[in-house]
Amino acid sequence: MIADKLMQVEARLQQASQTSHRSRDEIALLAVSKTQPAERLRAAFDAGQHRFGENYLQEALDKQRALADLAIEWHFIGPIQSNKTRPLAESFQWIHSVDRLKIARRLSEQRPAEQPPINICLQVNIDAEPSKAGVDVAALPELAHAVAALPNLRLRGLMAIPAPRTDPTAQRQAFARVRALLEQLNREGLALDTLSMGMSGDLAAAVAEGATIVRVGTDIFGARAQSTMNGGQTGNS
């Protein structure tokens, strides 16, 4: 069933790419696997999905141990506690949810010397929602330039979870604002290439506005089981 669902998501991505006059190769599919047991990730891997995004640190570390025989690219997309940055720095290739310089500095300091730099996306609170994580738009440039200067990190781009919208035009407008922020940072001298945005319900709009990573969970794994983890952040699938 997971293989069939992956095929359906791939068909949506192909259609969205074609409609937007983009190459499908420009867009990575990140399977959001929070609360999913390791065997379901293994089934997805066997079906060709090799990028997985996790929200809860301990759950992710458990899965990494269970799936250590697989060449998985691990992305962390959940909220980051400053006292838990070391295992993030040691165990993930990508971290999408950095929104404070303190967190970035700790990740840089704690990244093992023998590992390549961590790929970093800054999470932007594009709709200024009080309940949602992310750096304010006004504070983004200062944070971006500071993070880009840190060793052991590679600032790749921006991640955003806009407020839910059902109208495709409204969806695109929100994603266009994220894209404009990235373009502005590049005009200021940064070399960013990643827009992590778009989920199951707004994938096509995100692709139309330049998404390079789309985060899909429900349409691959089905409805999530209730997690017992604390501090979770919704809206990543």
Results as ranks from 00 to 15, higher is better:
194 T>N: 14
190 L>D: 01
50 H>K: 14
32 V>W: 09
86 R>T: 12
69 D>G: 12
203 L>C: 09
135 V>S: 02
123 Q>M: 13
6 L>M: 12
34 K>F: 05
15 Q>I: 15
82 S>G: 11
125 N>Q: 09
111 R>P: 10
12 R>K: 10
72 I>C: 07
132 K>C: 05
5 K>P: 06
216 V>H: 09
204 A>Q: 01
146 A>L: 02
214 V>W: 03
140 L>Y: 00
235 G>Q: 08
220 I>V: 04
210 G>W: 02
15 Q>D: 14
135 V>T: 03
172 R>G: 14
157 G>F: 07
116 P>I: 06
41 L>Y: 11
73 E>G: 13
37 P>E: 12
154 R>W: 00
202 D>A: 06
4 D>A: 15
31 A>Q: 04
78 G>H: 11
28 A>E: 12
125 N>S: 00
80 I>C: 06
106 R>S: 13
82 S>M: 14
75 H>N: 15
80 I>M: 02
204 A>C: 06
233 Q>D: 12
221 F>H: 01
176 A>D: 12
75 H>L: 11
20 S>N: 01
90 E>L: 10
149 A>V: 09
116 P>A: 09
182 L>E: 04
139 A>E: 11
48 G>K: 07
159 M>W: 10
213 I>H: 04
170 A>S: 12
123 Q>N: 15
178 V>G: 02
42 R>M: 03
